[in-house]
Design a protein around this nucleic acid. Structure first.
Length: 306
DNA sequence: AAGACGAAAGTGGTTGA
DNA sequence: TCAACAACTTTCGTCTT
């Protein structure tokens, strides 16, 4: 059977694609994206000579989606019509297997059904794009298949999967927001997030402070100019290595605060702190570092007087 | 009076022996 | 597994606008 193979990762463009036949997965070695966990045969086996014979030989059905709990497909072992062909011993085996298959698949499917409902709820609460929701569903499905949910609450794994998906798609939500939306403590989300990304070998690059800027800026009703100024500041900060090791939200908040001063759209530290989910103190610390290392003191002073 | 600033002590997570 | 450690928070007193 011919498999249509992807030449490069649709996510990061890397050519380093790994097809794992045993697991039936296609994985990008660069970014860890699971491109397809059920390899689909896109090739056509039959040529269609006319419209009559065509449809009957096509094997495609309704599109399958990761967010529908069984991808629109269920698995069953055999059917009663096959069973009379078997001898006595095999009959037993047949029934045992079918029973097991039934138990396992219904357990997983039941789980997925509930989990994906929860996932959709949280995702729409956070107004996450469809892509992210799909990615999260994919991650969750993998987690269930590998039995990573055992010993953890389903909700926390859902939250962890969503958080991971957000990071992968660079639409970061803070752990606080995720916690608020899912009703799970943020440290718990952090734990499961780390756990599943490690177990599933999903690599995620450290989040970039400037990813947070648009959202914070709009929450503070800051002008686009201020917004781009703060991205500029972040870029400069990155060059002098002010950003590494520090919480991205704190840096983003401080950059936004500085930018708001420079553009005469002053927001209080309190206001910025609230939308960014950090304290004033953190903003002050980052702010101090920023104006010192980047020599922005004069620039800020100049605008203060106006 | 509100906002900004900074010191000190506390918290949760990472790291390295 | 434990202790050291860095980042961040909480709290609170002081200074500035």
């Amino acid at each position: 059977m011919l498999k249509k193979k992807l030449k490069e990762c649709p996510d990061c463009g890397s050519k380093n694609i790994f097809h794992n036949r045993e697991k039936g997965e296609t994985v990008c070695r660069e970014c860890g994206l699971v491109i397809e966990d059920r390899m689909v045969d896109f090739s056509q086996e039959w040529r269609e000579f006319d419209d009559d014979t065509g449809p009957s030989k096509r094997r495609t059905g309704a599109p399958s989606s990761h967010t529908s709990y069984d991808q629109g497909l269920g698995t069953e072992i055999g059917s009663s019509s096959d069973y009379y062909k078997l001898g006595g011993k095999d009959k037993d085996k047949f029934f045992r297997l079918r029973k097991w298959q039934y138990r396992i698949s219904t357990a997983i499917e039941r789980n997925l059904k509930v989990a994906l409902a929860e996932l959709k709820r949280v995702s729409s609460f956070l107004k996450l794009p469809k892509q992210v929701e799909e990615e999260a569903a994919r991650i969750y499905r993998l987690a269930v298949q590998r039995g990573l949910v055992r010993g953890r609450s389903m909700e926390s794994v859902v939250a962890g999967a969503l958080y991971a998906a957000c990071r992968r798609h660079e639409v970061p939500r803070t752990l606080d927001e995720m916690g608020e939306a899912s009703g799970i403590e943020k440290k718990e989300i952090g734990r499961t997030y780390r756990f599943i990304t490690r177990e599933l070998e999903i690599s995620i690059r450290p989040s970039n402070p400037s990813d947070y800027i648009p959202r914070f800026a709009s929450a503070l009703k800051l002008s686009p100019e201020t917004q781009s100024k703060s991205v500029e500041i972040l870029e400069m900060a990155r060059k002098v290595e002010l950003t590494s090791g520090r919480g991205p939200t704190g840096i983003a908040a401080a950059a936004l605060y500085v930018a708001s001063l420079i553009h005469g759209e002053k927001r209080t530290q309190r206001e910025v702190a609230d939308v960014a989910g950090v304290t004033e103190v953190t903003i002050r610390n980052r702010y101090k570092e920023l104006i010192k290392k980047l020599n922005l003191t004069k620039e800020v002073e100049k605008h203060k007087k106006k």
